[in-house]
Amino acid sequence: MTARTAVIGAGRAGIAGRLSDIFWRNPRIMLALLLAPPLLWLGVIYLGSLFALLIQSFFSIDEFSGLINHEPTLKTYRELLVPANLDIIIRTVSMAAMVTVGAAIVAFPIAYYAARYATGRWKALFYLGIMLPLWSSYLVKVYAWKLILAKEGIFNWLIGKLHLTWLLEAYLQMPLIGGNSLSVSYTGTFLVFLYVWLPFMILPVQAALERVPGTLIEASYDLGASPRQTLRNVILPLALPGIIAGSIFTFSLTLGDYIIPQIIGSSRLFIGQAVYAHQGTAGNIPLAAAFTVVPVVIMGFYLWTAKRMGAFDAL
């Protein structure tokens, strides 16, 4: 009896032992010690900077001296509604929407095959086949498209070999989506965005499709549905949360990108480019800050809607 109490009662020896006892008895101290470094880092460096940026969006710039006026005002936000700036916002949001729809259409068959038909080694191959492009260098991917869409590049060569130059020219004649060549048109920008963000759509769609029970599809066939009806009424609704989860990435990443439209696209600005231009040479930090609030607000709404539709379960 006495031996037992002695064992339980005895503290551990040494500084390390005593510290370890203190932590064991007071998990709160341990928790605080664990959380303090990451919270300090993220809270001070990251949230602090974000907050500072937000505050600056309520300052304004003096048009004559170019100096920043530190009185809080909504003037900078009104400037966002100037037609030129509103154009930028509409252009970026519509591009993000197009890219999202395009990515969903291209991603679905890949995700469907990987989730329902690929087994064993093929499954691993599909997984790596999606992971490697996802993680390979963003700039290299953009560079590859610069090579493809160059005037003397592989795309025009292929079109020439197939004797389809007339078709490409007719396409480029079209307003808005056309241009002098693909590399300076919205179509080019769209293709590169689609390419770069596609893996972000495939992964969550695949995760959602993996969870569709096979018996459900069998039941649908047993009840006389055609493959098309099964796809429309059974599989697509169940895959929707995955598509929405993927669209969060494609939409958000397109909204904030400023490098792709700068390298492949017309000279008309996207939100990211506007932010970059205003903070850089123009030195108009308040307007740049106000511009960054736009994607944050849009994504806030988007996430809120997505959460209501249950998209986060598919992440």
């Binding site: 993220l42 460096i45 990251y46 602090g48 900077s49 974000l50 500072a52 940026l53 600056q56 958000s252 990443l253 909204l255 904030g256 990108d257 400023y258 990211g272 932010v275 970059y276 903070q279 930090i285 740049a288 800050a289 960054t292 994607p295 944050v296 994504m299």
Partner: peptide, 16 residues
């Protein structure tokens, strides 16, 4: 930090 567009993280840090 990765959910928000990188440009926001970038400009926030730069102005800080």
């Amino acid at each position: 930090p990765i959910a928000l567009p990188g440009i926001i993280t970038g400009i926030a840090l730069r102005s800080a």
